[in-house]
């Protein structure tokens, strides 16, 4: 027979991951970070917030500093050791370094486009190009 405590631990683990599985699908872009977008508590989380702001993206942000279970849970869910973590369309995209690189090489604009988000970063660039014609 499975000892009760062990059974409970396994069940707790499963519910936690189910909960996160739902969270990451609640918006097209979902971020797990330290602090909140208005007040990030870590440079890496701040970098992600700044990048998404440049692209004018509407997203869900979850503060892992407010919830120790969430902080560990998200690491278990993605098998990724660090925060922040970015999801697009329920899929794990990466941490700060990856998002920054995707911003630099244009991949982020494409990924956002795939889920029907027009990047504000592109709009700004387009306006710049239009201006000389006027």
């Amino acid at each position: 027979m499975i000892p009760f405590r062990f059974y409970n631990a396994v069940r707790g683990f499963a519910t936690k991951l189910d909960k996160i599985g739902n969270l990451v699908k609640q918006n097209k872009v979902v971020v797990f970070m330290k602090g909140i977008p208005e007040e990030p508590k870590c440079g890496f989380s701040n970098a992600v917030v700044q990048i998404l702001r440049m692209h004018n993206v509407n997203y869900d942000a979850h503060d892992v500093l407010q919830d120790e279970e969430l902080r560990q849970g998200i690491k278990d869910y993605t098998n990724w050791p660090t925060i922040p973590q970015v999801f697009i369309n329920g899929e794990f995209v990466g941490g700060c370094d990856i998002l920054l690189e995707m911003h630099r090489n244009g991949e982020l604009v494409q990924e956002l486009q795939k889920v029907g988000i027009k990047s504000g970063f592109v709009e700004k660039e387009e306006k710049k190009e239009e201006k000389p014609k006027e």
Partner: peptide, 26 residues
């Protein structure tokens, strides 16, 4: 892809990343 590359590095430094609190990679 980039995510797989970073995963290789993360896996290699799995033990170390438990205590390293800030880690940036290229």
């Amino acid at each position: 892809p980039l995510l797989q590359r970073h995963r290789l590095v993360n896996a290699l430094l799995e033990e170390e990343l438990k205590t390293i609190h800030a880690f940036s990679q290229k």
